[in-house]
C-alpha cells in the first residue's frame, strides 16, 4: 500500500487545535524537524504534546512553545529550555512529568492494545499519587495507563513507499513506539526509496504502523552538546 504524500503540508493535513500529538526524538536527536516547522506555520494551538523532551529555546518543540501553541506537555525531562521553565512555573503551561521508561512503555502499550501495566518506577514518589499500587514478588508497583495520540509524528533515516522505517543510531529512541500509538502516524524521512529496496530483515518499524510518509526537505540536525576529543 502506497503511503507516500508529496510534502509536509499534505502530510500534516487534519491536525487541528486542541489535538494530542506524539513527537519522536530524544533531546534534538531524531526529532521530526520539518513537521515541527510546519506546525508553527499552521498556527494550531492548545496542543497536548507527548514527547520525551521539549526542545531548546529556538529549536525542536521550543519553536511551538515560543508561539504558545502548546497547552500541555507530557515529557520525562525538560531541562534545556528556559521558555519552557518560565511557562511552567508561571502556570501558563500544564506539564505532566513521567519517568522515561514509563513514558516509553505507555506509548508502546497504547500501540499494542495493552490498556495499562504495572511498573516499579515512581513508587513512593509524587508520580505514584492517585495510582493503584500492587505488590508483585514482594515489591510494590504502580499502575500506569497507555498513551495514544490523534497524530504521531516520527522521524526515520530511511523509509519506503510502504511506510517501512529504518532508524539510525540513537535517533531511533521514542520513534518506533510513538509510530505504533498514533491514530494517524506521519513519518518524515531523510531517504525515501521504492518498496523492495529496504531489506525486510532490517526494518525497525513495519509499514502497518505508518499512514503517511514523506521525504523531509531539509534536516538541520542540530547538536545539543558537542563533545569531542582533539585529534592526535
Amino acid at each position: 500500500m502506497n503511503k507516500v504524500v508529496k510534502n509536509v503540508e499534505e502530510a500534516l493535513t487534519g491536525i487541528e487545535s486542541g489535538m494530542t500529538l506524539m513527537l519522536g526524538g530524544f533531546g534534538l536527536c531524531g526529532i521530526p524537524e520539518n513537521s515541527i516547522a510546519q506546525l508553527v506555520k499552521m498556527k494550531v494551538k492548545d496542543l497536548t504534546c507527548i514527547s520525551n523532551n521539549a526542545g531548546v529555546d529556538d529549536f525542536g518543540l521550543g519553536l511551538l512553545l515560543q508561539e504558545k501553541q502548546i497547552k500541555k506537555m507530557i515529557s520525562s525531562y525538560v531541562g534545556e529550555n528556559a521558555e519552557f521553565e518560565r511557562q511552567m512555573l508561571s502556570g501558563e503551561l500544564e506539564v505532566d512529568l513521567i519517568p522515561q521508561g514509563s513514558l516509553a512503555e505507555r506509548c508502546r502499550a497504547g500501540g499494542a492494545g495493552i490498556p495499562a501495566f504495572f511498573t516499579p518506577a515512581g513508587f513512593g514518589t509524587e508520580v505514584a499519587e492517585g495510582k493503584e499500587v500492587r505488590v508483585f514478588n514482594g515489591k510494590p508497583h504502580i499502575l500506569e495507563s497507555a498513551l495514544t495520540a490523534d497524530f504521531a509524528i516520527v522521524k526515520a533515516w530511511k523509509g519506503d513507499t510502504e511506510g517501512n522505517l529504518v532508524f539510525k543510531a540513537t535517533a531511533c529512541n521514542f520513534n518506533p513506539m510513538m509510530a505504533m500509538a498514533g491514530k494517524i502516524t506521519i513519518a518524515e524521512v531523510e531517504e525515501l526509496v521504492p518498496a523492495g529496496e529496504l531489506d525486510p530483515n532490517f526494518i525497525h518499524t513495519p509499514g502497518i504502523f505508518v499512514q503517511r510518509i514523506f521525504k523531509g526537505e531539509k534536516f538541520e540536525k542540530r547538536i545539543e552538546q558537542r563533545t569531542v576529543r582533539p585529534k592526535k
Binding site: 530524544f26 533531546g27 534534538l28 536527536c29 531524531g30 534545556e80 533515516w157 539510525k168 543510531a169 540513537t170 535517533a171 540536525k221 542540530r222 547538536i223 545539543e224 552538546q225 558537542r226 563533545t227 569531542v228 576529543r229 582533539p230 585529534k231
Partner: peptide, 17 residues
Amino acid sequence: PFEGEEDADLINAGKQT
C-alpha cells in the same frame, strides 16, 4: 568523537556526542 567526526544521530543520555 574526534573533532569533526561528531554525528548528530549518535548521542548519550546527556545529549553529548
